[in-house]
């Protein structure tokens, strides 16, 4: 059965064994195998088309917003305040600033609470209290954002402050961010292998230092994902802001006064009966997408792992 070496003279044809079909030949396989190939092909096709459909939809939305919004963009759009209908020009600068300011305040309120809750659930949470916390977090995550808006309106607009204000908007956004941060970060902390916790505890580090110096840095990428995800979600919220921050046609950084926000600005422009304002609505939508993309990019870059660059 041994094959001749490459240099040896060819064997006489009479002694050459007839070619034996390989047991691995797919064309020679039985009918059940052939149907297996068929099912495999169909399933793979379905999965690939599902992925393609998802990406296609997102691309169409993005492209459409760019096409419709681009004509509205110019320097004034980023630097001027909105003008009444009939006046040419104007921009969405107060809304841009308001969104950034409210998102910042909401992150300062919501991210520490969210990460703290996640650390509690993942590192300490045992027993009935942890179950209650987890249940409540899930409940808030499922709460329609308008309900959050109504609650904050009743609490802060009607009572604590007395008028529509940016702080109330920030609080509403923070409430929306907390469950997103908590659930994402908790999952990420659970992915950190216990061997790292043991290594740190075995070195004589206290529990809190183990968490701060080893567990959190190891889950860094996941933490950032959670924060960015929640900021993107909060940045697009409209309903709770309509009831809390209200919106503002003028520049105002005062957290205790009505504050403009991009989603509210989009809403106001979109429901108006003027073509020019519709274009501006598309433009604002494009700006909102840009703001959120830049925010997540900046968050990722500023918290990049610097190992090896020391």
């Amino acid at each position: 059965m041994s094959r001749p070496a490459a240099s040896a003279p060819p064997m006489r044809a009479a002694f050459v064994q007839p070619p034996r079909p390989s047991p691995f030949n797919r064309n020679a396989s039985s009918g059940s195998a052939r149907s297996r190939y068929l099912v495999d092909g169909v399933m793979r096709g379905l999965i690939v088309s599902a992925a393609a459909a998802g990406v296609f939809l997102l691309l169409v939305i993005l492209l459409y917003v760019v096409v419709r919004g681009l004509p509205a963009l110019n320097l004034d759009f980023f630097t001027q305040r909105p003008l009444p209908y009939g006046e040419v020009g104007g921009g969405v600068a107060p809304a841009l600033l308001g969104t950034l300011e409210m998102l910042t305040v909401a992150s300062l309120l919501g991210v520490p609470i969210g990460i703290g809750t996640a650390i509690y659930l993942s590192e300490y949470g045992r027993g009935p209290f942890a179950s209650i916390v987890r249940f409540v977090v899930d409940l808030i995550a499922g709460l329609p954002s308008i309900v959050v808006g109504v609650f904050v309106w009743a609490l802060m607009v009607r009572h604590v402050v007395g008028n529509y204000n940016g702080l109330a908007g920030s609080v509403a956004l923070a409430i929306i961010m907390i469950p997103i941060v908590t659930r994402t970060v908790e999952e990420m902390l659970r992915l950190v292998p216990d061997t790292y916790r043991e290594a740190a505890l075995g070195l004589g580090l206290p529990r809190w230092k183990t968490i701060m110096a080893v567990v959190l840095p190891t889950a860094r990428a996941g933490l950032i994902t959670g924060v960015v995800l929640s900021m993107a979600r909060a940045g697009g919220e409209t309903a709770p802001l309509l009831l809390t921050a209200l919106g503002n046609q003028f520049f105002s950084a005062d957290l205790l006064a009505p504050m403009a926000a991009l989603p509210v600005q989009i809403y106001n422009y979109a429901v108006a009966p003027y073509d020019d304002w519709h274009t501006k609505a598309w433009g604002s939508a494009l700006v909102l997408i840009l703001v959120i993309s830049l925010l997540s990019l900046a968050t990722r870059l500023s918290t990049r792992n610097t190992l090896g660059e020391r």
């Binding site: 790292y196 290594a199 840095p217």
Partner: peptide, 22 residues
């Protein structure tokens, strides 16, 4: 226990250097 572990060190079954540290 924290002080105890500073006097009695431990090496584990699987090598577990901290991944985010040099």
């Amino acid at each position: 226990p924290v002080q105890v572990r500073r006097h009695i060190g431990m090496v584990f079954q699987k090598p577990n250097p901290f991944p985010m540290m040099s």
